[in-house]
Nucleic acid binder design. Sequence first.
DNA 1: CCAGATTGGTATATAAATTATACCAATTAT
DNA 2: ATAATTGGTATAATTTATATACCAATCTGG
Lengths: 230, 230
Amino acid sequence: MNKELLHTKLVRELIAQIASGSFADGARLPAERKLCRQYNLSRGTVRQAFYDLEKLGIIKIKAGSGAYVQKVSQKKLPTNFLPQDFASVSFSDIIYARKAIETAAITLACERIDSQQLLQLENLIEKMEHSKENLLDFFKFDMEFHQVIIHASGNMPLITAFGSIAEYHKYSQVFSSIHEDEVDFAVSYHKKMLSALRDRDIKNAAKAINRHLEHTEQISKITKQKDISA
Amino acid sequence: MNKELLHTKLVRELIAQIASGSFADGARLPAERKLCRQYNLSRGTVRQAFYDLEKLGIIKIKAGSGAYVQKVSQKKLPTNFLPQDFASVSFSDIIYARKAIETAAITLACERIDSQQLLQLENLIEKMEHSKENLLDFFKFDMEFHQVIIHASGNMPLITAFGSIAEYHKYSQVFSSIHEDEVDFAVSYHKKMLSALRDRDIKNAAKAINRHLEHTEQISKITKQKDISA
DNA sequence: CCAGATTGGTATATAAATTATACCAATTAT
DNA sequence: ATAATTGGTATAATTTATATACCAATCTGG
């Protein structure tokens, strides 16, 4: 039984946030003292996490100024900072699992989603449309959209299951470049999901989320081929 | 960010094992020193876990002899020893999520399962047939069966997702009595799953696992009605 | 440009959790 | 009956994490 060191947890959390677009390359992380309040940790622990992140080459600390994100993508991270068995996980595996869980979730969400959550989805689509140039933001809003749907299902085991998969998904972003082509298609799929949820139309909601995920997988394959041929 | 105390982790682990049938009422838990080796913990930590379990009324410690399992079912456990948000989880929620994940998993398993895993399933069915009188054992073999299928899918995110749900499932056993009626039906469903996996027959494999889970849910509803009317 | 606020760097005392040993008394096994 | 095993107890050392305090570099607003 391994002790989960707090600063290691924080390292993982921050890597996930960086990978999922909360902080772009060159951006400054929140100040140490701010993270202390945010995560209820002492400063020593936060500093230990920062030290690890700098050793990993993920941030560069400047005294008196702050901690700045370096390029994270394509870095090889030690396994103890990665989700379990991350090496053996392909992007297709993640999409396959997401399809299973999210289809089940959106089916329930069609019956249970409330007007406030529908509004959230609407706002997120708007934000996505305004983030076509900032793909990191776009990705972040996309994930939030899916999180809202999962939570609207009201099914705790599904929520937990999705959480564990989202962990893999976030980290996979660290290793794959962002795909510009995805944006317009993705927005249209999300609009379809939203209107299907409004209409309580299970079939179309499921269809939309599956197509969206399949499209995401296709794009990633194309991107990888580019990487290989380059 | 909360520190996960090691002895609390062990308490959870042991409750899950008891609930999922590894130790029956009256059975003796492994000796403290044995658990130390098994989980790589110091004796002080194991003893702390034992102390918590005794306070919870789950075990009774006899000096010089051992720790003996008391009746666990229907006990109300403090939330810090339960999976996250366990209170808001119904058995139906768990079954719904399991259907989503296990259907996806058995579909992959039909293509990927190897002869050794098929043999494991065969042996587990045999064990189930010999455990009709010992429902705790039966439940344990049932879960092992499903674990083999999930692992045969070779999809790590699905494996992880199932793990998080299994946690809920194990604990739900603590609160519901075991259902004798389930046994014969369950065996037949598992046989159908095995033969479908052998034939690489995705449709029938999926059908069998869904019917099995639906049946499990039905039984639990009946059991609860009995509880209410009693 | 300057003054005050903010930021990372450093040191230290403290508390909590965990490990590692050792020995005892009760129970169990041979 | 004797040896092995088991839980009970005590203690010292180590590892983690918290809580403060103060410094120097940097940033910010007037």
